[in-house]
């Protein structure tokens, strides 16, 4: 598996990897039976801006790196902006992923969306 240096960096030194006790949006995607499970936590402030974001991931190197990367991309964005982060954005920011690992970046984007949906449900 040829991971880029950036993937390896985010894997070895994951950013924002922790459980967030005071999150107001939590999304979990994946299936541990398939070897991946990802939880994204967000704290959205009154201006609809993602003020804090973190993750917990059970999965391969790419799954951990994409989780880490998406927290960096999303922090400071409004919820609207964050929803536009695509699978490709994550992979591109990591200088690419091996073809068989592209679905791991789906996981990260899906996880963030799930967290945002959960936040919106909580705040209706």
């Amino acid at each position: 598996m040829d991971y880029s240096e950036k993937v390896m960096d985010h894997f070895a030194n994951p950013r924002n990897c922790r459980k967030m006790e005071d999150a107001n949006g939590v999304g979990t995607v994946g299936n541990p039976t398939c070897g991946d499970l990802m939880t994204i936590y967000i704290k959205v402030n009154d201006d609809d801006v993602i003020e804090d974001i973190s993750f917990q991931t059970f999965g391969c190197g790419a799954a951990i790196a994409t989780s880490s990367m998406i927290t960096e991309i999303a922090v400071g964005k409004t919820v609207e902006e964050a929803l536009k982060i695509s699978r490709n954005d994550v992979a591109e920011e990591l200088d690419g992923l091996p073809p068989v690992k592209m679905h791991c970046s789906n996981l990260a984007a899906d996880g963030l969306q799930a967290a945002i949906e959960n936040y919106r449900e909580n705040n209706q």
Partner: peptide
């Protein structure tokens, strides 16, 4: 329990 093999292998390789 609770961990995934590939990431373990990458950490060990490092």
């Amino acid at each position: 329990k609770a961990i995934e093999g590939e990431s373990l292998i990458l950490l060990l390789d490092a």
